[in-house]
């Protein structure tokens, strides 16, 4: 369960105050598939980032489960990100020098999982996204769709409660994009992870259980 109460995020740009998030309050239930939609610059990414603990609001409160994540220190917030959240980015953000397997292992390394165990887990995650035969490939040797699958496998590595996908199909063609959405939906349904997808893609919106519209930092 994710709860936001009066969350604000403000930027100063040339003397002007810009509200990326303006008094946002909302709730997301466990297992929900939520699509966050809105025009460019509306604050969608910011919303995702503060929920994911990648960024902190200036005021307000965010609670995930029974953990309040707004006022905690970097180490604790990082642990939250590590254990509870998985990010999937539009530009994949994979380590180009690492193999698929090594990429998926990254969150496990930070979680303190030792080599043998994390290898096994990473393999399982890659298999879950259908890349069991591409584990030793580097991102450069994979197609866009495959790369995004690796990202998803990485996001799943620590069995998170929340997956935040920021325009996950943005860099993919329609067919590949659909595959990815199907995969995400499958994971959402099968594993019960909260799926928050930021998107322009109406296809995703259709599949989602709920749509959150955001404009000028405000949620309607």
């Amino acid at each position: 369960m994710i709860q936001l109460q009066g969350v604000n995020k403000v930027y100063e740009l040339g003397g002007e105050k810009i509200y990326a998030l303006d008094n946002v309050s909302l709730e997301i239930a466990p297992g929900e598939f939520v699509a966050v939609m809105g025009p460019s610059g509306s604050g969608k990414s910011t919303l995702a980032n503060v929920i994911g603990g990648l960024d902190s609001p200036d005021s307000g409160q965010i609670t995930v489960g029974d953990q309040e994540i707004t006022k905690i220190r970097d180490k604790a917030l990082s642990t939250y990100r590590n254990k509870k959240v998985g990010f999937v980015f539009q530009t994949f953000n994979l380590h180009s020098g690492y193999t698929a397997l090594e990429n998926v292992m990254i969150p496990l390394v930070f979680a303190g999982v030792r080599l043998g165990k994390r290898k096994k887990k990473a393999q399982a995650c890659l298999q879950a996204v259908g890349l069991g035969d591409r584990m030793k490939h580097k991102p450069g040797q994979l197609s866009g769709g495959q790369r995004q699958r690796v990202s998803i496998a990485r996001a799943l590595a620590n069995d998170p409660e929340i997956i935040i996908a920021d325009e996950p199909t943005g860099n993919l063609d329609t067919k590949k994009g659909r595959e990815i959405i199907d995969l995400l939906k499958k994971l959402n349904v099968e594993q019960g992870v909260i799926l928050i997808a930021i998107t322009h893609d109406s296809e995703i919106a259709r599949q989602a259980g709920r749509i959150i519209n955001i404009k000028d930092g405000r949620v309607s």
Binding site: T79, F87, N93, F110, A111
Partner: peptide, 16 residues
Amino acid sequence: TREIGVMRACGASRGV
């Protein structure tokens, strides 16, 4: 820089 961003997204703290 991007790699560092990914590290942080994956749960690395500043200390790490």
